[in-house]
């Protein structure tokens, strides 16, 4: 039986956005007609996720406060869009595309390989907190599959060897 969202897990340490992000949000608000600042919610959540790694309840309440909207408006919104991690995730989140065109060129094998390599299942995070593996629906790289996205970067034409190299590069902080 599916329990309602377990919110005890969803409390993050960091409370406030950096000055740079706050300034960006202010700037974005000036770019839309007066009173339409709710438009900035998407960008604000993206900024928050970049800084905090994931979106906790505190973060959502905080953003609701920033944009002067009700917390439920943020909850409704964030739970609709799959890019937002509403549970804690590892430092690097691998989102592997599993949709048709990628499947035709072997995404299933790549997913299994990453599971094996990191010793986790889809949806899980490695014990050292470095990697989370997720699957994603079509990421718009159909001609360049199999592929995964991590921190807004695409890694395309994946092979097992490329996956090895990628994991190594992230582990040794050779890529951001």
């Amino acid at each position: 039986m599916k329990a309602h969202i377990d919110w005890s897990l969803r409390h993050s340490e960091k409370k406030e956005l950096s000055r740079a992000s706050l300034a960006k949000i202010d700037e974005l608000i000036t770019q839309v007609p007066e009173g339409k600042h709710k438009t900035v919610l998407m960008s604000a959540l993206h900024l928050a996720q970049i800084e905090f790694g994931w979106i906790s309840i505190e973060t959502m309440d905080y953003i609701a406060g920033l944009l002067k909207i009700q917390p439920i408006e943020v909850y409704e919104f964030a739970t609709f869009y799959t890019m937002f991690h509403l549970d804690p995730v590892g430092k690097y989140v691998f989102e592997v595309c599993r949709t048709g065109p990628c499947m035709l060129v072997g995404s299933d094998d790549i997913i299994s390989y990453i599971e094996e390599k990191l010793n986790i299942k889809v949806g899980e995070t490695t014990q050292d907190g470095m990697f989370t593996l997720k699957t994603a629906e079509c990421l718009g790289a159909c001609g360049y599959g199999p592929m995964l996205q991590c921190r807004h970067k695409n890694h395309e034409f994946l092979t097992k060897q490329k996956v090895d190299e990628l994991i190594e590069a992230y582990r040794s902080s050779k890529v951001e």
Binding site: Q31, V32, T39, M42, S43, L45, H46, F80, Y81, T82, M83, F84, A136, E137, C138
Partner: peptide, 12 residues
């Protein structure tokens, strides 16, 4: 004319 780019959040 002002032109702005706005991101989506993962929803076909």
């Amino acid at each position: 004319l002002d032109l702005r780019v706005m991101p989506g959040g993962g929803a076909y």
